[in-house]
Design a protein around this nucleic acid. Structure first.
Lengths: 359, 359
DNA sequence: TTGTATGCGTTATCAC
DNA sequence: GTGATAACGCATACAA
């Protein structure tokens, strides 16, 4: 039993009330063609009085555009994504686009069969809703082995509308990618810690099987092997959340002896700092913690987190602009985020071992 | 110069390819009416092969529903809203609805003239897009004096589609409201601090002129006056962000002598704690800080924040369910969030002044 | 300058 | 069982 609220006013009613034809009304609506000021004013008056607004859906049916973009991401509660959404929303709004938000982790569906895969489902929704373009942030595409069914659906969608993916490039995917300088970021933080004199450095957090994690870890290992006696046990992968830093740091220190740790992001870093605090260890005095990915607010933690500004938000702007360019038939730019910056704060301390290396 | 991607496949093409009429195709699409298994299989085969999906926009034009809800909020980056969005998205998805997200603070428009007011504009967008319902979280409606133009637009929108507002009830607004137990929450934290023995209690944060702020402040003052020698100078209102706690705490302590402060939320509390730390004061030893609104992650801060769980996320579920009820012509429930809980952590310390009150 | 007719992709009504 | 056909609200090509 559906209750119908007040009847929607249409262009036809405006036409009747103003004594003009629908085409003339349409003309003043779109400021196209010539309309006598007399009629125009009459029509505008009726529009104002009736509070009429043309239906975008009827309009879309004709124009083939919805002035809507879709954003797909795995987890809105992740701070990494928040800034991105904000930026995407802001830029889209500026271009006159509305946003559809799809949070794939929130769907209760089981990933057992492909049809119920939330990410595939999201792509279907996008297709049905006929959005003009889509921005996909992470998720399945971030895995080392991307599900083939997903990849297929993605490529098919990309044939219909431009799809921009914020992630490291995947070879057999035709979408536009917007990448970050992952290696550079990791290098900045590791070399900072090395330069401070630390030689027993661990790596904490990040989901195994996810490309950003593996890429960061590879860069980390490369550097650490170059300057120290690297040990497998100094690495612990789990996930990206606070609890992973909290639980992980203890395990990691049980595995091996460390005086420095690079966390995958500020959240994991905070979790680790908190656990160390409870264990009676002071950061940075007893052990230093750096992070490879800055999240908001970490400058207010105690201690504040020394980290890498990956300029994540700039990705949002770039992504939307790629989409707009694509709408206009302009060639894609090779898109990469701004160069990362080292943000020195408290959690790694200051120079201390200028003459003697801390083993 | 618009580039058209691969031609969208329509029901007509499916009809041709399968040798059935569009009506029959529509029947198998909607599982309505009788279709011979023979034709059905032929049609399903073509659909599968062509990867066809019916256009929601054409469908909407006819059915008068878009299976879409709109969410309007002032600032996605505010943690208070994040959980809400997540919850709203989750519940909506379960009911088969897609979400449109409008972040009014992100629009660059000036608030000078009503037409360009981002919030009014958002309501217009909602109307144009013909969403089935809308959830509005805070913003203009939270002000003590709601802009009359905005209110008018809101009431008009509410005549067309059900609108649920997550905020304290406003008298001359016809929308459905979902409220929080603001007073109870404030009472819980203030009485906790009073019970611990503190008698010089301040209030920090929150934007003046915003109803939640004023309401919380009123409750705070009522209680504090009842048990202590209240002083006007022990209150400082500014805003809801980290920097407000950071800058505000110093001003507040310059105004008057305090040994306890209630912050409007965990973010402001963290900002204050951080500044105090820099000033060489320890929380909770030298001064205790409580918060009236729990945000994620504050259990990991050092010290962790003693706060109030307002069960904000439950508001999201309630809001969407009100909308769904409304679609089904069911009467509105008087909606209120779950009862708030006191969350005792570290920032207010433990009982200490059992015999002697700390003045 | 303005109005009429047609189409957009889909569903539903109505004959066959 | 199935297939034409009208209708949804709007924009445009074409007439007038």
């Amino acid at each position: 039993m559906l209750i119908t609220k007040k009847h929607d006013i249409t262009i036809k009613e405006i036409s009747k009330l103003s004594g003009a034809s629908t085409s003339t009304v349409s003309r003043v609506l779109n400021e196209s063609g010539y309309v006598s000021t007399e009629k125009r004013q009459a029509i505008e008056k009726v529009i104002r009085e009736t509070n009429y607004r043309p239906s975008m859906i009827a309009r879309s049916l004709h124009s083939k555009q919805t002035k809507t973009l879709a954003v797909v991401l795995p987890d809105v509660s992740n701070p990494y994504f928040i800034g991105l959404i904000e930026e995407i929303e802001h830029v889209s709004e500026g271009y006159g686009y509305t946003l559809i938000l799809i949070n794939t982790m929130s769907t209760g569906a089981d990933k057992m069969n492909a049809v119920d895969d939330p990410e595939v489902k999201a792509l279907h929704t996008i297709q049905e809703k006929h959005v003009d373009g889509a921005v996909i942030i992470g998720g399945e595409i971030d895995h080392v082995n991307v599900d083939s069914q997903y990849l297929k659906t993605l490529n098919e969608l990309n044939k219909q509308i431009p799809v921009v993916i914020i992630a490291q490039k995947v070879e057999n995917c035709d979408c536009i990618f917007v990448q970050r300088h992952i290696n550079t970021g990791m290098r900045l933080i590791v070399q900072h810690i090395l330069s401070l004199g630390y030689r027993k450095i661990g790596f904490l957090g990040g989901k195994p099987g996810v490309r950003v994690t593996e890429q960061r870890l590879a860069e980390f290992e490369k550097l650490v092997k170059m300057y120290t006696d690297y040990d497998d046990k100094s690495v612990l992968l789990n996930d990206y959340y606070l609890k992973d830093g909290y639980q992980g740091i203890e395990k990691l220190l049980n595995q091996t002896d460390l005086n420095a740790v690079v966390a995958i992001n500020d959240r994991v870093a905070l979790g680790a700092v908190r656990r160390l605090h409870e264990m009676g260890m002071n950061v940075p005095k007893d052990i230093v913690i750096g992070s490879a990915d800055q999240f908001p607010d970490s400058d207010y933690y105690i201690p504040s987190i020394t980290t890498i500004n990956q300029h994540n938000n700039s990705l949002g702007k770039i992504a939307v602009e790629q989409l707009i360019r694509s709408f206009n038939g302009q060639p894609f730019l090779t898109a990469e985020s701004e160069f990362p910056d080292l943000v020195i704060r408290e959690s790694c301390g200051e120079k201390k071992y200028s003459n003697v290396l801390k083993k």
